[in-house]
Amino acid sequence: MVGRLMGKNAIVTGAAGGIGLETSILFAREGANVLMADISAEALEKGLMKVHQLSPHIQNKILSTVCDVSKESDVQAMVEKVDVWGGVDIMFNNAGIMHADDADAIDTADKIWDLTHNINVKGVWYGSKHAVLSLRRNKKTKGSIINTASVVALVGSATPQLAYTASKGAVLAMTRELAIVHAREGYRFNALCPAPLNTPLLQDWLGDDQAKRHRREVHFPTGRFGEAVEQAQAVLFLASDESSFVNGTDFVVDGGMTKAYVTPEGPATEPPANFAR
């Protein structure tokens, strides 16, 4: 089905790679105008090159902007850019950080805690706030805001990463409350809860620590990490009118991870060959 987002305007943060990049591509293919935002101009440029390579016919639907989501002035300026299109309809607050020095309650430094929460929690707050202001300013009767949380906010992490886990729990709580507060305005809020994915964020964090990697992979019935495009398909559903009665959910896309504590070891499976990109 093509055109599920036809005529809608979307913002994607953390858009230079991973879930954000795959979602930006899907949104544009489904007819949306997309503003890709990321803190790194260099990474954004690389992401745009990938968009052009994969789908040159949608490049006129995608713009980019540098944004530090931990700074409200940046977020406000980012959202106001979309006013030239008629205001935001879809906001995907996806930018996040999992710092390599994130650990347990004893060994996590204050600066790591603060950095993580400034991006993962304040960034979602600012994005949600200014999305609502844009929706109101442009007299929209419906809008969809999707916030990236994590399954670790539901079940805890196998490897200590306390600042990250706590920040994603805050995203879930914030999303639920926003969903209730703004429901009568027609603005839906949902939280995407991915399992660990094969993205640069996770791979950088795991590094060459095979023991740490194994402690995560063993929890997947499929024997593999998920792929970013699989999450993007879920975000597309939440952004579209097909999910018009979905509000305040913890939308779990985890390959069954949260349904099985530890699974028997076996050969890892490859991602399906027919991934929709």
Rank of each mutant, 00 (worst) to 15 (best):
V2T: 15
V2N: 14
V2C: 12
V2K: 15
G3H: 13
L5C: 12
N9L: 06
G14M: 10
A15E: 06
A16R: 05
G17F: 15
G18T: 13
L21N: 03
T23C: 01
I25L: 12
I25P: 02
L26E: 02
F27A: 10
F27T: 04
R29G: 09
E30F: 06
N33A: 10
N33V: 06
N33G: 07
N33L: 10
L35N: 01
L35P: 00
M36I: 00
D38M: 01
D38G: 04
D38E: 01
D38W: 02
S40F: 10
S40E: 07
A43P: 06
K46V: 11
G47L: 01
G47T: 04
L48R: 06
L54K: 07
I62K: 06
S64N: 07
D68T: 04
K71Q: 15
V75G: 05
Q76K: 14
E80V: 08
E80A: 14
D89S: 12
D89R: 12
I90S: 08
F92S: 08
F92L: 11
N94W: 07
A95T: 07
I97A: 14
I97W: 01
I97C: 04
D101F: 11
A103R: 12
D104E: 09
A105F: 13
T108L: 07
K111Q: 14
I112R: 03
W113H: 08
D114T: 14
D114E: 15
H117S: 05
H117T: 06
I119N: 05
I119T: 12
V121T: 09
K122H: 15
G123W: 08
Y126T: 03
A131S: 14
S134D: 11
R137G: 12
K139F: 12
K140G: 03
K142C: 13
K142N: 13
G143I: 07
S144E: 13
S144C: 15
I146M: 09
L154I: 12
G156I: 08
T159E: 01
Q161K: 02
Q161N: 09
L162T: 13
L162C: 14
A163Y: 09
Y164Q: 01
S167E: 11
S167Y: 02
K168G: 00
G169C: 08
A173Y: 10
R176T: 03
R176K: 09
E177H: 11
I180K: 11
V181T: 14
H182L: 05
H182F: 11
E185I: 10
Y187T: 01
Y187F: 08
F189V: 09
N190I: 10
C193F: 12
A195S: 12
P196K: 01
T199D: 09
P200F: 06
L202R: 00
Q203V: 07
D204K: 14
W205H: 10
W205A: 00
L206V: 08
L206P: 00
L206H: 00
A211V: 00
H214N: 02
R216F: 11
E217P: 00
E217V: 04
V218M: 00
V218C: 01
V218R: 04
H219I: 04
H219E: 11
P221D: 01
F225E: 03
Q231G: 11
Q231K: 09
F237I: 09
L238H: 12
A239R: 02
S244M: 11
F245Q: 03
G248C: 03
F251T: 11
F251E: 05
V252Y: 05
V252Q: 08
V253T: 13
V253R: 06
G256A: 06
K259M: 15
V262T: 05
P264I: 06
P267V: 10
P271T: 09
A273Q: 12
A276V: 13
